[in-house]
Design a protein around this nucleic acid. Sequence first.
DNA 1: TGTACATCAGTGAACGCGCGTTCACTGATGTAC
DNA 2: TGTACATCAGTGAACGCGCGTTCACTGATGTAC
Lengths: 213, 213
Amino acid sequence: VAATVTPPKRATYRHGDLRRALIDAGLELARADGPDAVVLREATRRTGVVPNAAYRHFADRNSLLQAVCWEAQRLAAETIEAKLAEVEPDEDAAAWARARVRAVGGGYLCFARHEPGLFLTAFSVPTDMSGITGIDEEGKRRPGPFGLLAQALDDMVLAGALPVERRPGAELLCWSAVHGLATLVLEGPLRAMSDEELASVGERVLDMVDRGV
Amino acid sequence: VAATVTPPKRATYRHGDLRRALIDAGLELARADGPDAVVLREATRRTGVVPNAAYRHFADRNSLLQAVCWEAQRLAAETIEAKLAEVEPDEDAAAWARARVRAVGGGYLCFARHEPGLFLTAFSVPTDMSGITGIDEEGKRRPGPFGLLAQALDDMVLAGALPVERRPGAELLCWSAVHGLATLVLEGPLRAMSDEELASVGERVLDMVDRGV
DNA sequence: TGTACATCAGTGAACGCGCGTTCACTGATGTAC
DNA sequence: TGTACATCAGTGAACGCGCGTTCACTGATGTAC
């Protein structure tokens, strides 16, 4: 859709960090038009480099997409963490834990709304993120979106807000509900929905999860 | 992925019902590999016709895809109707209505599981199916998947199993939960799930909806 | 400190592919007289 | 019942496009002596 944006210029022969630059370019493409828009040639073009240069850093187009996908997941996790940080501590531990789970869901929906392309890239590209384990970022291991949810649910159990026997698999219930709403709104038949509508339906979905889990 | 399967042969110059044949071919492509696989040229190839012949019946590739998408929705509706038909009447009107809503969800998941390509084609191609109104089929108007759900929820209200004030928008809650599970399992990070696992998680999601709506 | 050389990041040119779509055509059909 | 003609479904050939990927290369860097 969008034409080549960045005028490719470079002083040095070596690029510096081409790998990083390609991922960033791919991220922009994904942001604008979703995972299918992560086109190897376009990424190199925007980086001011010849197409095959990418093969020094990625085995093929798919490897690049994979890297972009992880990055998108990391960004999603950041949005969720921001929402989590907004939750103010409550004396009632159960209520607080509950609020945190809601915040995870809210952050997820928020990310879907504001970064539709990245959302699709993060969550509909075949990647194994089912583990609770996280994502590398500058060396540290941090929990991904799924990990944050799992953690919040664990906290609910600790706070006595969720019976232990209901805990296993609870991630899936939460995730399904919220993910479903997100995709229906993004690519599905609910695209016409306004921000307010989404917010209110979002709350209702979270209510349902809260009551039903 | 799949090579050209059908050897193109035709006795008459005129095809008979090329439009129908192209839709059917497109449906096969969608069944095998999802909406992106609905490729105009391949559809004509399988129909034993020259590529541009398609333009007598469809304005462009997208029109064909749209037609295939509707057809896929119709098939989804049929699966759901089959599940609905299996629900045996209950003296308790409320319980029966409840069971019918569950059946709608179950049919949806069932379709997603057995026809992943068609499922994606039906529900992730931009189409306005938000109306409760249905789909043309041999002249008759029949409710689509969404319509069946709406109807089942209406019945719940009538049976007193759902407070009227909770009715508006309830479709979205149900649909989100079930659709989310379906897409997570299909293209998302839960692809490894076995049939049994899916069935049991499916039940739990339906429980959640049941309790939470 | 200076030179020889291995390393490897980025280049230049090209490949084969399949796609959607357009053009001017030809062949079979159905209708009017 | 038979012929002239309009209609339009399907043909044949071609277009431009952008993609992923491969090849043999050249230029800058860093290390060993």
